[in-house]
Amino acid sequence: MTTNVNIRLALDRVNMGLLAQNQANAPRLYTPGEVVTAQQGFMKGHGTYVEGDDIKASVAGVMEQVNKLVSIKPLKSRYVGEIGDVVVARITEVQQKRWKVDTNSRLDSILLLSSVNLPGGELRRRVAEDEQAMRKYLQEGDLISAEVQNIYDEGTLSLYTRSLKYGKLSQGLLVKVFPSLVKRRKTHFHNLPCGASIILGNNGFIWVSPSSRSDGEGGDGGFSQNLSEIIPRGDREVIARLRNCILALAHCKMMLYDTSIQYAYEESMKYEVHELLQQEAIFDVAFLTQHRLRLQEE
């Protein structure tokens, strides 16, 4: 067994921008201070400001236009929540009757005790005992999947997990990407045919875990974690490969959704899992994925 070390030179850095060049409909990227529109009659939206008669971009990103409203959606940003979004989040603090949760947004989000399903699934008023046992359900560091229920005035998100598909996450791997790269879809829970399930959180947190065999529907509302279960090597390879593929797509600023991830996974099969950390492999996988996605569109 030898140590694999790979030190490459910055001179040889693979230009991931080449991917965008061979894309016919690559979105135009605006930089801060750039004039978005000089015409009259437009309204400034998020990520823009007015100087003179022009509307200029205040962040780097792509333009979105809804009728007369012009806004710039930043490429890199914190998560801006919307009601109904699926998020993957981490508990940071246990407070009175609520948990503080990190959702990658600007402010901490909250999860009220009244918006979780109690173990056992019974529906009842939360009593003092439940309050005392809060840390037993969810403690600091725990990951959950949840949905945004409400947005308070100052921008704090209120989450809920009162559905069987949400709840505490067990063994698996968290991948962090920019929130803007996660494509909004009808469903964000996927059981991929390669043998792993992923939760694509709108907040840029992606949860990759082995396909649950028993609890396909979420099971018990999820407070149980089976820590003694050892994930077999095969599942691990799938998970690690998915992780590297997701990061490869994210590195090339490609949108993440079930199809793109599945394609990237299939295209990556010619590489060993650890080879997918190399820039050439990242570029190759992204390029082939892009190609396949385009073929599918046509």
């Binding site: 067994m1 070390v5 790979n6 030190i7 030179l9 791997l173 690690a240 650890h274 820039q279």
Partner: peptide, 27 residues
């Protein structure tokens, strides 16, 4: 637990073995 079992299996979360380094870039 997931990381720990992975290390014991000699297959880490990103597919490396216990003795592998991640790729580096130098200038």
């Amino acid at each position: 637990t997931f990381i720990l079992h992975g290390v014991e299996e000699d297959f880490r979360c990103d597919g490396r073995s216990r003795r592998d380094y991640r790729p580096m870039e130098l200038e």
